[in-house]
Design a protein around this nucleic acid. Structure first.
Lengths: 225, 225
DNA sequence: TGACTTAAGTCTGGATGCAAAATATGGCCG
DNA sequence: CGGCCATATTTTGCATCCAGACTTAAGTCA
């Protein structure tokens, strides 16, 4: 995991998330070579990966730009994510084992403990994001369809990942964990409809939380598409 | 359109779809260099792209293999496709213009003419696939969310593309075009629910047609689970 | 005989040089 | 003075070379 492509990927990705590379800005391969201290080959690999994940827009013979997300795009991708997660949890509801149920339940208990005892808001957000990711990754694993779960990173609007880290407060985290617990109950009853409804609410709530927490930003002019 | 990366991408993709590269087989970069008559750099680009789209599996320092599909995976990916196409046409129903409507209608008329006059079954299949792709590409364009439409290739099970090319007969093509016409009517009424229902039936029918390896005259099929 | 070690061979990941396309610059003509 | 065309520079795309990792196979020892 310490090879050049991953290094370039992580550095460029972090630069975008942190805002060092602003939306709409041209990304020069040569500049990334200097920034990451690797050659152009892994830089190009990283840009391709970031393009797949929606961080970057690439055009043939022209290069790459930091992708701008319109409000409409973010909303639509959230809707797509809700549908795909809905399918995932349907599969989970039919495939989950007792061991899987126990693991998910443990995750929600851990989360509850963190919510109850972690005082620092930043640390709370950090730990929430970690446990939250773990929970959803376990869902993908149980759904047991790599083709679908590999698609999910492409349905996580990049600006969201950034924003949520700062905007999650205790109530929001609490509600999220309640959703997870409802999911576990639905799984324990093998109730796919219930599970799907819960996870869709879960995603829609995340969208609203994102949207309302968004400052009205002035975006750089995106390249013509 | 005629650059080395695309050439390699298309040739390798076609080899997988046509079965020249069988599921589970190791893909040697050097072999692809000889097959595509380009250097290793564009071959590597192509393999990475195909990895995004689920055609090949890549492992660090080990190379690439043709990814195999289980029956379960195919079924689940069809379900995912139905959901995503359902969202796409909802967006179309709210965004389409009169010009867009006319273009789609023209496509269905062309298709009807082909069905009526093309005698050779192979030519019929060819022309159907071309017009069908055109129709769906127009939907993606009208939906106007590149982020979502770029993901659709990853939801096209490779073995299916192959099978349908040989299995589409006149009835199946006819039914498909009726679905398209129903879609256009739904769009003209800006009826997103109608459009979504139609396209889901459309995809489910395609799945059943694939699964049974024979045409189906039934339009409404039960949910996949 | 079988399993482990080790060394040779093969293949992928990364770096660099070169060619072509796109962009930027400057001069010319209207 | 402004728009257009030609040229120069920059940047991307492609090919090739080198190094490191993995695979394979032979050989040795238990």
């Amino acid at each position: 995991m310490t090879n050049a492509s991953d290094i370039a990927y992580r550095i460029i990705r972090k630069s975008i998330i942190d805002g060092d590379l602003v939306q709409g800005e041209k990304i020069s391969e040569e500049a990334m070579v200097r920034l990451c201290d690797v050659s152009r080959t892994p830089v190009r690999d990283a840009l391709r990966q970031l393009s797949f994940e929606g961080y970057v827009l690439q055009r043939k013979n022209q290069g790459a730009w930091v992708k701008s997300w319109s409000d409409e795009e973010v909303k639509e991708v959230y809707e797509a994510r809700a549908r795909m997660e809905g399918l995932i949890v349907r599969l989970v509801a039919t495939k989950i084992s007792d061991a899987g149920l126990a693991k998910l339940a443990t995750n929600t208990d851990d989360m509850a403990r963190v919510i109850a005892h972690e005082q620092d808001p930043l640390a709370l957000a950090e730990r929430f994001l970690g446990l939250n990711r773990e929970f959803h990754d376990q869902l993908y694993e149980i759904a047991n369809n790599p083709r679908l779960s590999d698609l999910m990173p492409a349905l996580s609007p990049p600006p969201v990942v950034h924003k949520t880290a700062k905007n999650f407060n205790r109530d929001r985290v609490q509600q999220s964990n309640e959703d997870h617990r409802a999911l576990v109950r639905a799984f324990s009853k093998s109730d796919a409809n219930w599970a799907e409804s819960v996870v869709k609410s879960h995603i829609y709530a995340a969208y609203v939380s994102y949207r309302d927490g968004m400052p009205t930003t002035v975006m750089a002019t995106p390249p013509l598409e």
